Amino acid sequence: MQNLEPNYKAIIFDLGSVLIDWNPRYLYRKIFTTEAEMEHFLEEICTSDWNEEQDAGRSLLDATELLIQQHPQYEAQIRAYYGRWKEMMVGEIADSVALLKELKESGKYRLYALTNWSNETFPLALMEYKFLQWFDGIVVSGKEKQRKPSPGFFNLLLDRYQESADHALFIDDNIRNVNAARNMGIESIQFVNATQLKNDLLHKKILN
């Protein structure tokens, strides 16, 4: 049975939409003339399911060519997905990064990132965001060829860094991933915004 007041030792962060403001719409609003055209493209062509295959290790080249074969009329827009990928990242989520900094400076917790991210594009984030150096470890799905919500991906981080699910806290914006972690006995917070996250961390006495 889980303790009423867990002794937290490790805090595991998702990156995209928690610490890094990434959204393909930032790019495609520059490409399509209407929101409807953009949403159709992202829902039917460059879909989340397609993108997640790159997060799981499929090469960007193979992914791009596959879609172009299926939708040749969208070739230019498909090539823009990775050709102009950096335009999907508009910066850090400053208030969230401030919380990460506070946790780091407290010295009380080991900090990790568990991210669904292509191994080919992640080096761009490493160069762009210095706060990624604050983590004690980062596990990238594209490198490991598995991704959230797979239990094996969570266990990979726990085993690699010799952490216990009972003493870990996981933070992710995607409820699918949050539920997967909870099912493994990892207490989890679904991220909505930095104010909500700070309140949750205060409530758990992780922040003072």
Rank of each mutant, 00 (worst) to 15 (best):
A113K: 08
K198F: 13
R110W: 02
F154R: 07
L156K: 09
K143P: 03
K30L: 08
Y26D: 12
V140I: 10
E39N: 13
V192C: 13
G142P: 04
N193S: 05
A113T: 00
K9H: 01
W85I: 13
W117T: 15
H40V: 14
F122I: 14
S96Y: 07
L103W: 09
A56R: 11
L207F: 04
I68G: 07
R110S: 10
S141C: 00
K30E: 08
Q146Y: 00
L169N: 05
D21R: 04
I206Q: 09
Q2W: 06
L158C: 10
L4D: 13
N193D: 14
L100G: 02
E144A: 06
Y26H: 11
N183V: 12
D173H: 02
R84W: 05
R110P: 09
L207N: 02
A80Q: 15
Q133S: 12
A36D: 15
D166C: 13
Y8T: 00
Q133G: 06
D95A: 13
E53A: 14
N199Q: 14
W22N: 15
P24C: 05
I12A: 08
G185V: 08
S106Q: 15
Y82L: 07
Y161V: 11
C46Q: 12
A56E: 11
M89G: 03
D62P: 02
A94R: 11
D159P: 05
E44H: 12
N199W: 12
A125H: 08
A125N: 07
P151E: 07
N51K: 06
N177K: 09
L103H: 09
Y129K: 04
K145N: 12
A36R: 13
Q2H: 06
L42G: 01
L157Y: 02
V192T: 14
A56S: 13
S188T: 05
G107Q: 06
N119Y: 04
L157I: 02
A180D: 05
K108L: 15
E44D: 11
D62V: 09
T195Q: 14
A36P: 06
E43F: 07
Q54W: 05
Q2V: 12
Q196T: 10
A56W: 02
A80W: 12
N23M: 02
S96F: 02
G57E: 11
E120I: 00
Q2L: 08
F153I: 03
N155S: 04
K86T: 09
N208S: 14
I186A: 01
G142S: 07
L126Y: 05
D166E: 14
T47H: 11
R29E: 01
K30Y: 01
M127K: 13
F154T: 03
A165W: 03
W134V: 03
R176G: 14
A125L: 15
F135Y: 01
I171G: 01
N193M: 11
L4N: 10
V18G: 08
V139F: 15
D14C: 00
G152S: 04
L156S: 01
S164C: 12
F191W: 14
Q2I: 05
